[in-house]
Design a protein around this nucleic acid. Structure first.
Length: 495
RNA sequence: CGGGGCGUAGCACAGCCUGGUAGUGCGCACGGUUUGGGACCGUGAGGCCGCAAGUUCGAAUCUUGCCGCCCCGACCA
């Protein structure tokens, strides 16, 4: 028997790493800080992409593709942006290798030095706004609503699979608008889409809010985010949407003629989510038996495991469930019939549990006789026997569809309850220091200064996750300095 | 970059202290018995013991250097 997973309560990060490995989602590669996303993990990412992409398209965005390389001079143009990213850039300096004159292998050819270094994009504002200069002349060219799916590289000192890797996959939307209001509206719209995706598809409740100045994206006027709570009480930033003002338009000289025939700089937004969402998904729902996937993102929603002794029995079961398979597929359910003879049923039960398949159907000879199917749900780890007409299983399939919806809803409600139970109103500095050690979201007053924010971070490792958009405005006194505060903000330790 | 740890079969590790035939478990291959919650027995394949130099009759084991990885910090729009 294979070893049990480490328990969440005993070693959360080891539990996380083991799930990623054992559920066959991804593995660390030979390349420092970079992961290999395996087929099962990538299938989940593809489902995320599909759902998000549909939402982007439905709100008028189009996909495009821009270069991997950013000339250093581009990155330099927006000062804050450059400063923010400078410390984590991979830089291409040469374009050729040659045989090592001193022996074996290859060396960089010193004669092949690039005139200008190329940065492997950590984000694409600069390349994209450089291109936009040629695309935008008139107010009629706006808004420009573009998204790209790609990889980016940020040379982080310490990496964690899915949560912070040197290279990661993401989408980055970059829009240009004729008015400030339109750009602000876009920023909010995309934040709303992220929240809708997180809650509706990932079954993960999020707090929508705005970042404090020190947590703001380099080069942005305002950064909005969705913040989720993980099962260990730490926060995870799950998506960001930035209002960039005219900063990049000015840096890249993107001007248009407005309706009054005056030259004006374009207004910008950018927004992104990444493969970090995979980490969020794992940590939001999974348990000590392995991954738990919400049905809407599960590559396999229903697995059917035949239970048999002889090859004849297997053939009988396979034949008998054919209408059921057909009916489930017709309902748009992604179903796998695992008739692999190399593993026993008990092994399969454990394996699909580890992989988070929402619903498992067990069918053996005695079920055929009694016209029943064992239905197991992953979220509750419960089993029940459900009647079925094997010849015309429509009714049964409808029931499975309803069950998938129930599981999706249950996961969301469970995660929401967890967040509520781990969100605390904190009024004194002593309470704050005590609670932060236990984890969770701390709703506390803050005087709005970077000094206080910094001091709290240094003393407790807690950061301001966001100033929530939806909150009853209640003035109070800063939990640290005692100065006036207009409303509570969310503090937490974060990934 | 600072602190700690580790490199031995595909994976996880023992052996090293005290130098002398390279081992265990999982996995893999084949055969058989099994099969309603990770089966069992038998047989077998698989190793530059991270790399290099040194000590020695002899090095996985001792010494030195190098390389790589992991964990804890610093860093993290």
């Amino acid at each position: 028997m294979a070893k049990a997973l480490p328990k969440r309560s005993e070693n959360y990060s080891e539990w996380y790493n083991e799930i990623v490995k054992r559920a066959d989602l991804a593995e660390n590669s030979a390349v420092r800080g970079c992961m290999v996303i395996k087929p099962y993990g990538f299938a989940i990412w593809e489902k995320m992409q599909r759902a998000l992409d549909d939402m982007f398209k439905a709100t008028g965005h189009q996909n495009a593709y821009f270069p991997l390389f950013v000339p250093k001079s581009f990155l330099e143009k927006e000062e804050e942006h450059a400063e923010g990213f400078a410390k984590e850039c991979a830089v291409v300096t040469h374009y050729r290798l040659k045989a090592n004159p001193d022996g074996k292998g290859l060396v960089v050819d010193p004669n092949a030095k690039l005139e200008e270094e190329l940065i492997i994009r950590p984000t694409s504002e600069t390349v994209i706004w450089n291109a936009y200069k040629g695309w935008i002349q008139s107010w009629r060219d706006l808004p420009l609503l573009i998204n790209q799916w790609c990889n980016v590289v940020r040379w982080e000192m310490r990496t964690r699979i899915f949560l912070r890797t040197a290279e990661f996959l993401w989408q980055e939307g970059h829009t240009a608008h004729a008015t400030e209001q339109e750009a602000v509206d876009e920023t909010h719209q995309m934040l709303g889409i992220y929240a809708e995706f997180a809650e509706g598809w990932m079954a993960m409740p999020v707090v929508q809010g705005v970042k404090s100045e020190s947590e703001r994206f380099a080069g942005a006027i305002e950064t909005f985010c969705i913040e989720a709570i993980m099962q260990d009480g730490k926060a995870l930033q799950a998506g960001t949407s930035h209002f960039l003002g005219q900063n990049f338009a000015k840096s890249f000289d993107v001007q248009f003629v407005n309706k009054e025939n005056q030259l004006e700089y374009a207004w910008a937004t950018s927004w992104g989510v990444s493969t970090r969402l995979m980490g969020a998904l794992i940590m939001a729902h999974s348990d000590d038996n392995g991954l738990v996937l919400p049905p809407k993102l599960a590559p396999i929603q229903v697995v059917i495991v035949p239970i048999y002794r002889s090859p004849e029995d297997l053939a009988t079961i396979s034949e008998k469930i054919r209408p059921l398979l057909h009916e489930l597929k017709a309902k748009g359910i992604s179903v796998k019939y695992d008739d692999n003879d190399n593993q026993r049923s008990g092994w399969k039960f454990a394996e699909y549990e580890l992989r988070g398949v929402p619903v498992r159907l067990g069918i053996g000879m005695r079920d055929l006789d009694s016209r029943a199917v064992e239905v197991a749900r992953r979220d509750l780890l419960s089993k029940e026997s459900r009647p079925i007409n094997f010849e015309s299983p429509e009714e049964f399939a409808v029931g499975i569809n309803i069950l998938l919806d129930e599981i999706q809803e249950n996961l969301y409600q469970r995660a929401l309850k967890f967040r509520e139970e781990n969100t605390f109103l904190v009024n004194t500095w002593d309470e704050f220091k005590e609670q932060i050690e236990k984890g969770g979201f701390l709703m506390a007053h803050w005087d709005g200064t970077a000094e206080t924010e910094e001091a709290i971070k240094n003393e407790t490792k807690a950061t301001i996750r966001c100033l929530p958009l939806l909150s009853a405005e209640m003035a109070g006194k800063c939990v640290y300095s005692g100065k006036d505060s207009p409303k509570r903000v969310v503090f937490a330790r974060a990934y």
